[in-house]
Design a protein around this nucleic acid. Structure first.
Lengths: 150, 150
DNA sequence: TATTGTTATACTCTATAACTATA
DNA sequence: TATAGTTATAGAGTATAACAATA
């Protein structure tokens, strides 16, 4: 009687992982982020500083603290990001009118110009990543994702 | 005429970001992963080594190369992970029966015992994270996520 | 010549502790 | 006493280059 040889794997069975919400959400998130990184590199933007700039765009005068709590960034990690955006002359820090400790964040004219293009590109890119979904499927997907985290 | 004071932000408007698939997928993924980290810490498992162990569980004899290409891990980063799992005596490396370069990966008896509990916990935890979704909504969510990345 | 597994190493991202100025 | 912003630094995660053994 021969010794049993160790088995070999031809096609990998990932069906258990594919039954998990966390696995699927991570993989889908990674897929979108990958395309985002490629397409948004021309603006010098990654997902995090794009999110920061977008919140400043739609909330002029927002503070660091508000950015941190809304985006889940830790304050020490935001400092360098804001410095870089200020050096690129995309944002300015103005003294907060009612709190001497805080600074209000604002886009410069150049910042507004760039974000107009960047947000258009971001929205367009998503349509391509989700090209295999109908418009109503994409709406459903986003609504269900928000029921997880919001 | 008084100089215009810089505006302040009371409630942050994140409606643009919340219209983006990438933003929602990342936030939802983070929410699931956060609970995963808490609940799976007792097994000494994070999402990545759980995924590795799960693929070994359901694909005994799988090679490093196959793990890497299925999970998007780079080979140099897998080595340390496998060494740690081997030291914990959860997996063993056996010579591959048909390729002298490769090693087939297998669970030990202790590994099987641990993964039985770990997979049960992982599946249960997901039901809690998705508690605001009906069973059919969760099925739909996973199906739509797979249409993005698969 | 190409591939598997590995080492060494660099880079980025994220996290913690401690300080200052103001509330 | 608590909070906003900052500095310095540590740790985890992710990336590239190069090598030995085998196909």
């Amino acid at each position: 009687m021969a010794a049993k040889l160790p088995p070999t794997v031809e096609k990998v069975d990932a069906s258990y992982l594919e039954s998990l919400l966390g696995y699927n959400a991570s993989r889908a998130s990674l897929a979108v982020v990958t395309v985002f990184l490629e397409r948004m590199a021309v603006y010098g933007m990654k997902p995090v500083n794009f999110s920061v700039l977008s919140l400043i765009t739609h909330n002029p005068g927002i503070t660091s603290r508000q950015l941190c709590s809304n985006l889940g960034i830790l304050p020490p990690n935001l400092v360098g990001m804001l410095n870089a955006l200020e050096q690129r002359e995309l944002i300015t820090r103005k003294p907060h009118p009612r709190d001497g400790r805080a600074m209000g964040l604002h886009l410069t004219a150049a910042g507004h110009k760039l974000m107009l293009d960047a947000e258009r590109t971001a929205t367009a890119l998503e349509g391509e990543v989700a090209s295999r979904l109908s418009v109503s499927e994409l709406k459903t997907l986003i609504r269900l994702l928000q029921k997880i985290y919001l």
